[in-house]
Amino acid sequence: MAAYFLRRVLQIIPTIFGVSVLAFLFVHAIPGNPAIFLAGPNASTATIHALTVQFGLDKPLAVQYWYFLINAVHGDFGKSLGDGQPVLRIIGYHFMPTVELAFFGLGLAVVIGILAGIASAVRRNTSLDYTVMTLSMMGVSFPAFWLAMMLIALFAVHFHLLPSGGDQGWKSFILPVISLGTSGAASIARFTRQSMVTTLTSDYVRTGRAKGLRESILIFKHAFKNALGPIITIIGIQFGFLLGGAVVVEVVYAWPGLGNLLITSVEMRNYPVIQTLLLLFALEFILASLLVDVAYALVNPRVRYD
């Protein structure tokens, strides 16, 4: 297991390297001299020149990348345009609200998705199964931002039950978490059902049933445990979607998180912040994939020998 883990960690190093190159090139892909927008709209020629020298923008790209990497490793991602604060500090302000939102959103998606998927697989081809599958098909097709708006119209405006935005107490979590978790829950339900149908119709479950095992033990201990591999994989993929979905959902609910920060930064052309956020989101996604692979290996020892 340790060897597998180590190999998997080593495998992501080239990907992280590539992602950092892409994030680095991001600023250079914008037409014009990066120093001009690093300096901000009202900067003097002298400031621009100073920045050019400071960031080594007159040096070859490879050298510039090296500086970028060294600074990044030391936690220096440059300064935000406008207020001149370190990028990392600004991201720090917005980090926790997004983590909380993503945590509860993913939690909701996993719990509802797995339970609905198991129920659907166990009661295969009944009206319960059809209902769950229809709802899950609708769930993956909702634009998250529109679902968010409709929930506000219904629960905040019409019934006055829940706040329509902001981050003030547990009540303000409910609507954003539902908006964020719905499509994940739907996806996970579909994959859980598919995976469970395969294991429930397998020989070992039939044998277990023949020898008189209780149905609940069959479902959870035998069928579900073996169906877990693909389910874990889809949960990992959903995490990526969740990070993306968080952006639009945060905008609708005026949530003080990274998604809102990203949108404001794009509108203000605050490139150092955009660059760091892209890098951060990609790293989170890569880390999530790593965790998924390790979890997969834990539940399915066969993959470790590949």
Partner: peptide
Amino acid sequence: DIILSFPGILL
């Protein structure tokens, strides 16, 4: 792999 490491809408 590198391009798909960025979640869709963020890319």
